[in-house]
C-alpha cells in the first residue's frame, strides 16, 4: 500500500518535470536556453518515471520473490544511466555545433568564447 503512494508520487514528479521541459523548449528564444530546459528537465523527468518502474519491481519482488522482477529493476537502472550520459553528451555536441555555425546567444551580457579559435 505504501509502495503505491511512492510510485504515484514519482510518476507525478516525472510528469511535471517533463511538461516543464517541453514548455521550456517551446518558450525559450534561442538554442542554448532551449537546451537548458530540454536536457535538465526531460532527464530528470525520465529518471523519475523510471524510478516508479523500479519501485514497482521492488514491491512486486517483495510480494512474489520472482526472478524476473530483478531483471526489470536492473535493466531499468541501466537504461536510466545510459539516458543520463547520452543526454548530457548530446547537448554538449549540439551546443558546440551551434556556436561553430555562427549563432550567438541572444542578449548575452558576456561572451568569452568570442575570439577563441583553434
Amino acid at each position: 500500500m505504501i509502495w503505491n503512494v511512492f510510485i504515484g508520487l514519482s510518476l507525478l514528479i516525472g510528469l511535471v518535470a517533463n511538461t516543464l521541459g517541453i514548455v521550456g523548449v517551446l518558450r525559450f528564444p534561442d538554442v542554448y536556453t532551449q537546451l537548458h530546459a530540454e536536457t535538465k528537465a526531460t532527464t530528470f523527468g525520465s529518471i523519475f518515471t523510471s524510478l516508479a518502474v523500479i519501485l514497482y519491481g521492488i514491491s512486486k519482488f517483495c510480494q512474489t520473490s520472482d526472478g524476473q522482477y530483478v531483471t526489470l529493476i536492473l535493466h531499468a537502472l541501466i537504461a536510466v544511466v545510459v539516458l543520463a550520459i547520452t543526454n548530457a553528451t548530446g547537448a554538449h555536441a549540439i551546443a558546440r555545433a551551434t556556436y561553430r555555425r555562427g549563432h550567438r546567444p541572444v542578449k548575452a551580457v558576456v561572451d568569452h568564447l568570442e575570439g577563441f579559435s583553434k
Binding site: 546567444p105 542578449k107 551580457v109
Partner: peptide, 14 residues
C-alpha cells in the same frame, strides 16, 4: 529551470 520557464527571467552569457 521551472522558475525560468514560468517567469521568463534570464541574463545569458558564455
Amino acid at each position: 529551470v521551472a522558475y525560468r520557464v514560468l517567469t521568463g527571467h534570464m541574463r545569458p552569457g558564455i
